[in-house]
Design a protein around this nucleic acid. Structure first.
Length: 482
DNA sequence: GCAGTCACG
DNA sequence: ACGTACGTGACTGCG
């Protein structure tokens, strides 16, 4: 763990660490195949040889421990490692081993229904095009839309026309085929990635779906989830919610979720100490409405839905280092209006502007940026002479401390909650983490206690300059949680 | 194995 | 003048 954590790049495994830190060359187990060699799966290796390799692994890991521990101390990262990341390991083990129950019958019904719908959609698309083609091929689709049907071309990719959803959205109304394609894309995505795949992944021994939570994979300190990814289960739209309904609690229990409200903007408020943002959260205001009121110079009560929508986009955009062009693309605004809104935003929140500038400056001076708990991201390209590379690096530098501080917070909450649940001998299980949400399986007789415990621990995980607000919901399925 | 696309926060 | 919002993972097509 210590080696993997310090150098989280996935290409830097034990083998390369052994070489760079200890000068030890570790040879993989290979066999000769023709002219080259091929790695043999461990399951097929002779047991004596496997033992030697296992001992070498343990030996090298032991030798690395001292070196890397020193380095963590020198970089001020020991506390984060020792008090957060290491205690998180058994929590993630528990979550992975627990798995989550899946209503495969519901998914099979959906698969059948969507299959029939897709056949009809295909026919309509072929009819519009005048011939059959592979709708899943963006190359073929681009040729149908832009060469044959002569629709106005938008962005291009390196291999041809872009046919992404944002391009198609702008073509909506110009031809009947566009809407069919958008629907086709949505249905095939959900069907192939979730509805058809998930039932195959139910473990026959446990009858549940078990993900892997990757602790050393991201540049910001977030977790990721893979095989299957349970952090990107659909939620938007009717169909999305229906997929989520297939994630269920067994009889006699419920699923319970604790969600941080606006955690990234709260992280930003704390990091920047911007007075306006702090005040808004301290008064528990609707943050997007509060921003709208400032941007449009109207009372909060007179903020319209449209004004709030723009403010929400700007609030998120700021966390990502958005440009006027980016804001224009994401809204109905013109480029000039978008630029005006960004200027206005920083005038109304001067603390945020100062903070973002200081963060970029730290990146330039030290070569890295950091979160509330000192987690670092190296930003070597922030001094690049190439405008494009440098700007991209600045956006990473702006975003990482915010996203990473939120990750710090929820990780601490997970460790504390798990330890408290063990201490109280609760049978409830922590199942999933989705960046600002924790999902639990809770026996009926523990529901009252967990509904109190989860928000209590989540909201006090770290003490910030503003309250951490947590919403709590329980239901028989993930899709019915609101 | 990469490119394009799209699901999530 | 440049290209254009951060972080992920999975699926399909294609060479």
């Amino acid at each position: 763990m210590i080696a993997a954590y310090l150098l989280s790049d996935k290409s830097l495994g034990l083998k390369s660490l052994a070489f760079s830190r200890l000068g030890i060359e570790m040879t993989p187990i290979t066999e000769l195949i023709g002219a080259g060699t091929k790695q043999i799966p461990m399951s097929l290796v002779d047991i004596r040889q496997a033992a030697d390799y296992a001992c070498a692994d343990a030996d090298v890991t032991g030798q690395l421990t001292g070196l890397l521990t020193d380095e963590l101390h020198k970089q001020g990262l020991w506390q984060l490692f020792n008090d957060v990341e290491m205690p998180l390991v058994p929590v993630l083990v528990h979550m992975e081993r627990s798995g989550i129950a899946l209503d495969t019958e519901l998914l099979r019904q959906m698969a059948h229904r969507l299959g029939e719908q897709l056949i009809k959609l295909e026919a309509e698309i072929y009819n519009c095009a005048g011939h059959q083609f592979n709708i899943n091929s963006s190359q073929q689709l681009g040729s149908v839309l832009f060469d044959e049907l002569k629709l106005p071309t938008g962005r291009k990719t390196k291999n041809g026309y872009s046919t992404g959803a944002s391009v198609l959205e702008e073509l909506r109304g110009s031809h009947e085929i566009i809407e069919h394609i958008l629907e086709y894309r949505q249905l095939t995505k959900l069907k192939s990635t979730y509805i058809d795949s998930l039932p195959r992944l139910v473990n026959p021994k446990t009858g549940r779906v078990h993900t892997s939570f990757n602790q050393t994979r991201t540049a910001t300190g977030r977790l990721s989830s893979s095989d299957p990814n349970l952090q990107n289960i659909p939620v938007r739209g009717e169909l999305g919610k229906e997929v989520r309904q297939a994630f269920t609690a067994p009889p006699g229990s419920s699923l319970l979720s604790g969600d941080y409200s606006q955690i990234d903007l709260r992280s930003l408020a704390h990091l920047s100490q911007d007075q306006g943002l702090l005040d808004a959260f301290n008064h528990d205001e609707d943050i997007h409405a509060a921003t709208a009121s400032r941007l449009f110079n109207v009372d909060t009560a007179r903020v319209t839905d449209d004004m709030r929508r723009v403010a929400k986009t700007v609030n998120f955009g700021v966390i990502y280092g958005m440009s006027d062009y980016g804001l224009q693309q994401a809204t109905e605004l013109s480029r000039a209006e978008a630029a005006q809104f960004i200027t206005a935003y920083f005038e109304k929140y001067p603390g945020i502007k100062k903070y973002l500038e200081a963060t970029k400056q730290q990146g330039r001076d030290l070569g890295y940026v950091e979160t509330l708990l000192g987690r670092r991201r190296s930003i070597p390209e922030i001094n690049s002479p190439n405008y494009q590379i440098r700007e991209a690096a600045e956006r990473m530098a702006i975003n990482m401390p915010v996203q990473g501080t939120s990750a710090d917070i929820i990780k601490v909450a997970m460790v504390r909650l798990y330890q408290e649940m063990v201490k109280r001998h609760l049978k409830s299980k922590m199942l999933l983490q989705v960046h600002d949400e924790l999902l639990f399986e809770v026996p009926d007789d523990e529901l009252d206690e967990m509904r109190q415990l989860v928000p209590e621990v989540m909201s006090t995980a770290l003490k910030l300059s503003i309250p951490l607000k947590v919403s709590i919901n329980s239901s028989r399925s993930w899709g019915e949680l609101k």
